[in-house]
Nucleic acid binder design. Sequence first.
DNA 1: TATATTAATCGTAATATTGCAATGTATAAA
DNA 2: TTTATACATTGCAATATTACGATTAATATA
Lengths: 109, 109
Amino acid sequence: MGLAKTEIFTNLQNEIALFAKVFGHPARVAILQHLFKINTCICGDLVNEIGLAQPTISQHLKELKTLGLIKGNVEGTSVCYCINTENWTKMKEVMLQFLDQDLPKTDCC
Amino acid sequence: MGLAKTEIFTNLQNEIALFAKVFGHPARVAILQHLFKINTCICGDLVNEIGLAQPTISQHLKELKTLGLIKGNVEGTSVCYCINTENWTKMKEVMLQFLDQDLPKTDCC
DNA sequence: TATATTAATCGTAATATTGCAATGTATAAA
DNA sequence: TTTATACATTGCAATATTACGATTAATATA
């Protein structure tokens, strides 16, 4: 069917999947890395930094914004984006808990 | 279109995206969590544990195996799956480095 | 006001993903 | 050797994602 059966999973499982999904495209990884590197807000030169068309970047930014990982602020004709530090920290806790599960001493296979 | 322009991104960006993508579905999150919980290997009762059809689970397991995050071992008629601890650790390092970037003191927007 | 600049939105083509019924394959047990 | 069990594979329908040209909306500047 093309759509995940989210109703059979826990809220946490769905939340982890949603966060992971947004990181599941190199353009969004690159956008976030750039925002971290620049630290101070960045505007539409993401289009130059990354080699994708403006509507494509805009679309990726929207997904990051929808999940609350970045903020966008209109400044004149341009828009200033930056990491939403509070939400990033919350997301990080969720993901770390998932990634940091105790490993068995030896693999069974 | 419909496919990511991986060639314009770094190997690391693509690697992060690939790992994240596989975590981007709640069924695979649930499978991994179950494998961690059971610790000792698990076989096809993942189908009972999670509420999806056998071919669907098999497909998700294949993706996890392709990325090297789990191992599968044939034991008679059943197959025993478990976390690939070595690769899990490597993946974790890559993801932690991405998630753990230094946040600015204050958001700019 | 007219024009330029910046970015969001719309529409669409190409491709990927999800889920499952049906079927195939391999091993174990009778 | 037949039958049962456990998984993998195939094929397909429904939906999602990616990318971008064209357009729109909003603001700044001449």
